[in-house]
Simulated assay, not measured.
Amino acid sequence: MARAEWGHSNNGRGGNKWWSYKRTTVVICCMNIGVALYVLYSLYTSLYNYPYYDTQKAARYSQGQIRKMEESIRIRKESEPIELIKLVKQIKEEFLKERRMVNLPLPLKHKITDEIVERLQDLDPSANATEQQEAVERWRREKLKEAKKVKRGQALNSNILPEEAGMLAKALKSNWAELSEEIGLWIPVEIITKEHDDKPEGEEEFDDSIIPGRQLPPECHAKLHTDYDGAAVRWGLTHHKESAYECCQACLDHAKTAKPGENKCNIWVYCPSEGGCYSPDIYEHKLGECWLKYAENPRVNFKDRYSDSYRNSHPNSPVIVPWVSGIVSA
């Protein structure tokens, strides 16, 4: 009886060994491996079920289809404006070539600008635009003569380097207008208007307030190459005038017609440059912009020229301030 019980106990232990956790783990791992292999096989075979892998079928075209494609390509090429493309390319190359001729080294531009500003500062403060223009023209002729002497090796005491003499002479002689625009030099042209008493009968009175370059009245206090700060009462991007005179007049009119409690214009800022005027903001300021501003204590943003430190931090800025502005009389 005792042996039978012992044998039964051994059989029970054997059964527990066979279904132990180790064998269970092995079975589960095998099942996982089988599932993973099936998934990989499915992905591998599915890659060949897409049409774009059937390259042989995709590349098969009939002779008629090929002829139509060739005809389409031929028609497209014949319809291209070849002559126009060549002309545009030629104009672009000429323009870039011209711009390269004016593109002087930056230190040389600074040197030129410093000399021009110094020449203008030597003039009497009451000098008009004609006198300023004559002073700049005298400087240009003198500098051109000096550059030619340096180029020929005949100038001993000159601040022009021999390697700069050739391109400086070329810029001063052939590309002076472009160079003036590039360094931000602008001097207004005074237009002398004559009064005529022999106006034909029946002709309407001509409004000379729109004549570009009309002499500004004293109450405008116009300052060349000056940009005054202030709160805008009229946004210049959408407010254009034909002349500085009109811009100043718009400021005077605004001050007269302003409603009670509104800021009255006492500062006007005008862009007279055909190439536009630089300003340290995100907008492109164009010829004719007229900003009307107000400030209780007007102060200057920029005057005459931008400082070296400012140009170092704003490499796109010109050397000379392009704006003309003024504070109107109270």
Rank of each mutant, 00 (worst) to 15 (best):
T238R: 06
A222N: 02
D304Y: 04
K259Y: 09
H239Y: 13
G236I: 06
H254V: 03
L292N: 08
C251I: 11
H314V: 03
H239Q: 08
A231R: 11
N316W: 11
Y228E: 01
G230I: 05
V319G: 00
A258K: 10
Y306F: 14
W268A: 06
A250K: 08
S309D: 07
E262W: 12
S273F: 07
Y278I: 00
T238C: 06
Y283E: 09
N312K: 15
C265E: 05
G275T: 12
K241T: 14
Y228P: 09
G276M: 05
Y278S: 00
K303M: 07
H240P: 10
P272M: 06
K286Q: 12
H314I: 02
S317E: 05
L287F: 15
C248A: 05
G261N: 09
A232V: 09
A222H: 02
V269P: 03
T257F: 07
P318F: 01
G288P: 03
Y245F: 15
N263E: 14
Y228V: 04
H285Y: 07
N316F: 09
Q249P: 07
V319R: 01
R311I: 06
A232D: 10
E289D: 10
P260D: 13
P315R: 04
F302C: 03
Y245D: 01
Y310S: 01
N297S: 12
N297L: 14
D229Q: 13
Y278W: 15
S313T: 11
P298G: 01
D281S: 15
R311E: 02
E262N: 14
I282T: 11
Y270D: 03
Y283C: 10
E296K: 15
H225F: 05
